[in-house]
Nucleic acid binder design. Structure first.
Lengths: 199, 199
DNA sequence: CACGCTATATATAAGGA
DNA sequence: TTCCTTATATATAGCGT
């Protein structure tokens, strides 16, 4: 959709590749936004340039929420693959279906999506090698994400602990002042004490 | 780009909204692929329909890799600072609790998934290749231990947050007493942000 | 829902600032 | 990089199957 048709293959000219990247990147994100608005859905887009630069956008729900959804499905897949792996070599097709049915109730109350289990039949046909490799990959991802979460939580803990410490300190030291300051603060419309505490 | 121009706002007609969703969803993913190929970049797209159905695609690097990149850049700042920021900007009791509850639910659903996974593993432990089973087991242990660590950290977080909240509440309640004593002086001048804190 | 078929609305390739 | 402009290539709205 330009002066001439371009084939969808790597653009050799570096500078025009850069320009195209910029244009189409913006175009893609705008399209994503439109889809989200028109159809009340959520769209997350993450783009990594050739040089590793990151561009991302989300509309509808927040990026975090959308990615969390994706990860949940991801975990479903892990569980499904786990079943598949353990089943492929030892159970017949019929037995597998029976198992799936047995699992449906459990799946409903748990976090496994029905779709994931239903697709088990297809997974069954998947080569065992692929299944195993994928499962391992997913588990590694899970582990990694948990490790990141852990780091995150530790940092949060630190933040909270710091705040608490500062507040206790302030309480112990600033009781007298507070009465006076409180009045002045409100008269001058200065935001409440929480602000200085958290700096 | 159709028979007539459409405004970018929710399509009211359910059926045409559905059709548009399907068409534009495919269009978006194709655009993503093209961008990736033309400019040797990586693009990940996650779409959540109004009914919660998930669609995702990636080109260039794998989805996991792309999302990991995103998380690496954003997780720490985005989520940690999100909480810190909310806390700093006049933390309200309700908001804080909401955040913590959200985190706990996240943990719960994670735990459930993992538990399900483990139980599946037990149910299907028909003599498998010993090496593979052992490998999986070790991975699960890793995951589980990380989950436990996460849970502990979250509990710790909650305790800290509760303490912080209570302390702020006390401080403000104490201040309220003072305020009552000389309410007339600045009754109309109370910053609105403080009100939710007193609930 | 997915597909096919136009008529149009849009996106975007080139080229220059 | 971003912004324009213009000529074209594409995407897609509306309507059937």
């Amino acid at each position: 959709m330009g002066r001439r048709k371009v084939e969808i293959k790597r653009i050799e000219n570096k500078s025009s590749r850069q320009v195209t990247f910029c244009k189409r990147r913006n175009g893609l994100m705008e399209k994503a936004r439109q889809l989200s608005v028109l159809c009340e859905s959520s769209v997350a887009t993450v783009i990594v340039s050739a040089t590793g630069k990151l561009y991302s956008s989300s509309s509808g729900e927040s990026m975090a929420k959308i990615l969390k959804r994706y990860e949940m499905q991801h975990n479903d897949e892990l569980q499904t693959l786990d079943i598949a792996e353990k089943t492929e070599n030892h159970l017949s097709h019929e037995e597998l279906l029976e198992i799936i049915q047995c699992k449906l109730e459990e799946a409903k109350s748990n976090n496994i999506s029905i779709e994931a289990l239903i697709s088990l039949e297809e997974q069954f046909k998947t080569a065992l090698d692929v299944t195993r490799a994928r499962k391992t990959e997913l588990m590694m991802d899970l582990v990694k994400s948990l490790e990141e979460k852990e780091k995150l939580l530790k940092e949060q803990n630190q933040v909270l602990a710091d705040q608490l410490t500062k507040m206790v300190k302030k309480r112990l030291l600033g009781r007298e002042d507070e009465r006076v300051m409180s009045l002045e603060n409100y008269a001058g419309n200065i935001p409440p004490e929480t602000l200085p505490l958290l700096k």
